[in-house]
């Protein structure tokens, strides 16, 4: 009874004859950095160093394999455009005394199966593992020499993930970001790791338009942005990813 009286008093007091519900249009913003130690796996064809072999698959094995998840927190290790991000469960995160490690095996029809070891250490939150796949019967060649990235004025991007199906939730992604110049149809290149949706880079040229790509839960999410200022808030439609929050 006392509780009801208190609620009534509270409503009378706090409502203050306002017209709009205090929580109208408020979004719940959720961070995705639950898996704090991650490895970006990039699988490419050794012949050109860019495109990913078709139908490549990845399996995880080794001592800590049970603790390793895709960045969306699932046990589904699906390569998307040759890319996947994996990491250990927060409870199995590496410490100064203990690392977390696993082996990844990548197979693709017509290519030699490749295995690599991935070790997560407490002093390295992000790492990139490049896996170069050699065609069956082919020879291992030196990886193509990549051109140095040009350096432009610093640009800050603040990404927010939105979902048409859950307008009351927004995602602040912590994940690896890829880019390409719009209209080139070139393969996406690694741009950097964004922490809680924010990333500052010097590889984007003012006056150009870029496609940005996130890969999360085995799906690719893209957004296009013209760069002519130094700071942008970029909304990325993340499809049905919000239903997990």
């Amino acid at each position: 009874m006392m509780s009801k009286i208190q609620k009534l008093l509270f409503v009378a007091l706090i409502a203050l004859a306002g017209c709009k519900k205090p929580t109208d249009n408020l979004k719940v913003v959720v961070d995705t950095d639950i898996i704090k130690y991650t490895a970006l796996i990039q699988v490419t064809d050794a012949a050109n160093g860019v495109s990913a072999p078709a139908n490549a698959t990845l399996t995880v094995s080794g001592a800590d394999a049970n603790d390793i998840y895709e960045i969306s927190g699932k046990k589904q290790f699906k390569l998307t455009n040759g890319i996947i991000t994996i990491g250990p469960d927060p409870d199995a995160a590496p410490t100064a005394d203990k690392t977390a490690s696993c082996n990844i095996q990548i197979s693709a029809p017509g290519y030699n199966t490749t295995t690599k070891s991935v070790t997560f250490t407490a002093d390295q939150k992000q790492q990139i593992i490049n896996v170069s796949m050699v065609k069956t019967g082919g020879t291992v060649t030196a990886p193509p020499v990549s051109k140095p990235q040009p350096v432009y004025e610093s640009v800050s991007l603040n990404f927010t993930g939105t979902c048409a199906s859950r307008k009351d939730v927004e995602i602040r992604p912590s994940m690896y970001l890829f880019y390409r110049e719009t209209g080139t149809n070139a393969a996406y290149q690694y741009l950097g790791y964004m922490e809680k949706g924010s990333i500052t880079v010097t590889t984007l040229q003012k006056g150009k338009t870029y496609d940005f790509q996130l890969i999360y839960g085995g799906k690719s999410y893209t957004q296009t942005q013209l760069i002519d200022e130094t700071n942008y808030d970029v909304k990325v439609d993340m499809g049905d990813a919000c239903k997990d929050f």
Partner: peptide
């Protein structure tokens, strides 16, 4: 939130 509450000014 500030926009939602800007008219909450009457304390009966």
């Amino acid at each position: 939130l500030q926009r939602n509450l800007k008219d909450y000014r009457f304390l009966p």
